[in-house]
Design a protein around this nucleic acid. Structure first.
Length: 483
DNA sequence: ATGTAC
């Protein structure tokens, strides 16, 4: 496999894409020559295992690809709906993890004073629980409604921008707010996860999950789209990155153990015992798909409630005139059915974001003409991006990257990055310091930018391949991390 | 990423 990577380096074909012919099938890699050359050859081993799942129709990597459990983060993997497979390993354990962006009526100049940014972060800490809550929190929200109905299961008071179909921007400006499922499967999960997941509603979680206060810098190439979306230069935005917490974890754990048994009974498997998969029409496959949808419901509500808490904090600091309208909410860890031409396909995206171009029928109404926003987080302290799909994205089933892509393990990052380097990347002590919440900087060092590829290079690669364009950069002013 | 077992 290492040999193959070197061969490809020696005969570059196109600048931003190449097809890698592996023993088990073709892998489509969307990465610039320099990013491709820097890939760990293990990502090709992993693709070769994934391609051994029967009937795979398409498999690709985005430029931020890196090794995960069973499957790389940065994978798009597709089967036919009629006789295909579903893989909990390809979806990954943080089912429904994704991004949400809100636009405020503040300008970055309003937050020029570092003391005011700190005051806002402290207010967010008061309203946004960073860890599991005591019993009784959100007692007016029923978890069984949330996991069955997603955003439609929320009481009206949590939809502050109106509840009529025309005005409910926080319910309609989402990739999907409600995933229908066969509710009988919910009974399979242990009772304890209901309590835990209820107490975790509206919390960030740990790792790379965050809420950031950012400001918008529009890209001149797409100023028309930016303005149609209501963006303006210097506008303060709130970006949220979180997933389905313990609920998704329990779904993954329970279904994985059932699928392991099924695979053993049927003699299914690849070279990697950690790579789990089930026929879509099998009992364990159906169970996984339905319970995965419940986790997608949980995740979209979780991000909505995080935004709700930050809105309350903003109003406490800036008064009731503070606004936080929803731009978009979309996922990067999931699998679902999509129509592509005449084909009905089951599309897995793990660390991959869908970016539909203008005019694509699957865009939500608000973005039918422009294409929808695709939200790509940078690493801590660096820019995040608001992208829009291009027609060329069709070649990759409209998948683009999901972030910078980790290049260094948490332990290696702690070993290699000094506190001085990290403090300097966060501009600590200067007037434009990126203010972080109560966690000490030492405890955040494994999320430092040095643990990640350069997100700008990842974005250049996606743009160069013709998959998407940059509508705006979002630059950090303050970051809130979970525990 | 997460809960849990070590």
């Amino acid at each position: 496999m290492e040999r193959l990577l070197q061969d490809n380096e020696q005969r570059p074909q196109e600048a931003y894409y190449r097809k890698v012919q592996l023993p088990a099938g073709d892998l489509h890699v969307y990465a610039s020559d320099s990013l491709f050359a820097g890939l760990d050859y293990k990502v090709l081993d992993m693709a070769n295992n994934n391609l051994q799942i029967p009937g795979n129709r398409y498999m690709s990597y985005t430029p931020d690809v890196h090794v995960g459990v069973g499957t790389c983060i940065g994978t798009t993997a597709i089967w036919d709906m009629a006789d295909g497979y579903v893989s909990p390993s390809i979806v990954g354990s943080d089912i429904g993890c994704g991004m949400r962006l809100h636009l405020t009526n503040l300008h970055r100049d309003d937050l020029r004073d570092v003391k005011l940014r700190r005051k806002l972060v402290k207010a967010i800490e008061r309203h946004l629980p960073v860890e599991e809550q005591a019993r009784g929190h959100f007692s007016d929200i029923r978890l069984d409604h949330i996991v069955r109905k997603g955003l439609s299961g929320l009481p009206k008071k949590y939809v502050p921008d109106g509840y009529t179909p025309r005005k409910a921007t926080s319910l309609t400006r989402v990739e999907c707010g409600k995933f229908g499922l066969d509710e009988s499967y919910l009974e399979r999960l242990p009772e304890t996860v209901y309590h835990r997941a209820h107490r975790q509603l509206g919390t960030l979680g740990n790792g790379n999950h965050f809420a950031e206060i950012q400001y918008v810098e529009i890209d001149e190439d797409h100023r028309d789209i930016a303005e149609q979306w209501g963006l303006s230069d210097g506008q303060v935005a709130v970006m949220i990155h979180s997933g389905s917490r313990a609920w998704g974890g329990a779904v993954n754990q329970y279904c994985s153990s059932e699928i392991v048994k099924m695979m053993s009974r049927r003699g299914l498997g690849t070279a990697d015992p950690k790579l789990l998969f089930a026929p879509l029409d099998s009992e364990s496959g159906q169970m996984y798909v339905n319970l995965m949808y419940s986790a997608l419901n949980y995740a979209v509500v979780n991000r909505h409630l995080i935004a709700y808490a930050i809105r309350e904090a903003g109003q406490q600091v800036f008064g009731s005139k503070f606004e936080m309208s929803t731009l978009y909410d979309l996922m990067h860890n999931y699998a679902w059915e999509e129509k592509h031409g005449k084909n009905t396909l089951f599309v897995h995206r793990k660390g991959a974001t869908r970016a539909l171009p203008p005019g694509h029928p699957d865009n939500p109404d608000a973005y039918a003409e422009t294409g929808h926003p695709a939200l790509i987080p940078g690493s801590m302290g660096t820019s995040s991006y608001i992208m829009v799909g291009k027609p060329g994205g069709q070649s990759n089933y409209y998948s683009i990257c999901h972030g910078a892509g980790r290049i260094r393990s948490r332990s290696a990052t702690k070993r290699l990055v000094t506190m001085d380097q990290f403090r300097s990347s966060m501009r600590i002590g200067s007037d434009d310091e990126i203010v972080v919440n109560q966690r000490t900087l030492e405890s955040l060092i494994d999320e430092s930018p040095q643990a990640y590829k350069d997100v700008d290079q990842i974005i250049d690669s996606v743009v160069g391949a013709g998959l998407a364009g940059v509508v705006a950069k979002c630059k950090p002013l303050a970051a809130v991390k979970g525990v």
